[in-house]
Design a protein around this nucleic acid. Structure first.
Length: 134
DNA sequence: ATAGTGACTCCAC
DNA sequence: CGTGGAGCCACTA
């Protein structure tokens, strides 16, 4: 397991522009949030960024997922765009893999679209406050 | 410093 | 619903 990933705590927290020296830490916050998304649910890039304390950095979330080491086994397929759709282009390998992974855990996907009413992850405050290490 | 590039968002048609 | 455009932010060349 990644050492820095486990060492996250409130003292690492800071918002505002992303200091180059903290790039890794910010990415780990994103990984942590993604890891919290329950099976059978999804969350938008922008939402993950917000929960990680990085508002306005939805694009950074996609980058963080691409960079995530496989050993973390992140449920990256549970992250979709704000329109409730898989962001990869249709007829592409990543697209098909994401759709398949979602269906396996019970998330219905039609033409890349997901009904957010049914599958969006809506964590309650207590869950966040008690589980976030930052 | 400038320009281009995304697994993004929001909003107006 | 689909499209286009502007805004966004971290990187990279």
């Amino acid at each position: 397991m990644n050492g820095k990933f486990c060492s996250l705590n409130h003292e690492n927290y800071q918002d505002g522009p992303l200091p180059a020296s903290d790039a890794l830490s910010a990415m780990e916050k994103i990984w942590f949030i993604v890891a919290m998304i329950p099976e059978g649910h999804v969350s938008a890039y922008g939402n993950v960024a917000d929960l990680a304390g990085l508002p306005g950095r939805a694009r950074y979330v996609s980058k963080a997922l691409k960079m995530a080491p496989d050993t973390l086994q992140l449920p990256w397929h549970r992250v979709i765009n704000s329109q409730g759709k898989v962001s990869f282009k249709p007829d592409t390998l990543p697209f098909r893999e994401q759709v398949e992974r979602l269906r396996i855990e019970g998330v219905e996907v039609n033409n890349g679209k997901i009904n957010m009413k049914h599958f969006e992850w809506r964590p309650d405050m207590a869950t966040l406050v008690l589980q976030l290490p930052f």
